[in-house]
Amino acid sequence: MTEHIKPLRAVFVPFRMGHHFGVPFHVNAQRRIIAEALDFVRTATHSGQILDLLRWADLRREGAQIEKQQKS
């Protein structure tokens, strides 16, 4: 859909709906997604470019670990 809409710059994140900034309580991942998006404003070379970012499985595992630590 992003390819059809052609926003000037877009970051593709592999998360399910409702979770576009990663997983709950994973502050570092949330910050990284924003930081990469803001940096892409500067580094994008052409309109319509899409930046692929992160692996959902990795972040989900890290997020589960963070929540486990919060509860212990």
Binding site: M17, G18, F21, V27, R31, A35
Partner: peptide, 23 residues
């Protein structure tokens, strides 16, 4: 129209207002 289970635990997962305030 979207699952809010994550957002109800940590709003920043969909509306990262605290992360933006930090920046």
């Amino acid at each position: 129209k979207y699952p809010t289970d994550g957002a109800h635990r940590d709003l920043n997962v969909i509306f990262p207002i605290e992360r933006l305030q930090e920046l």
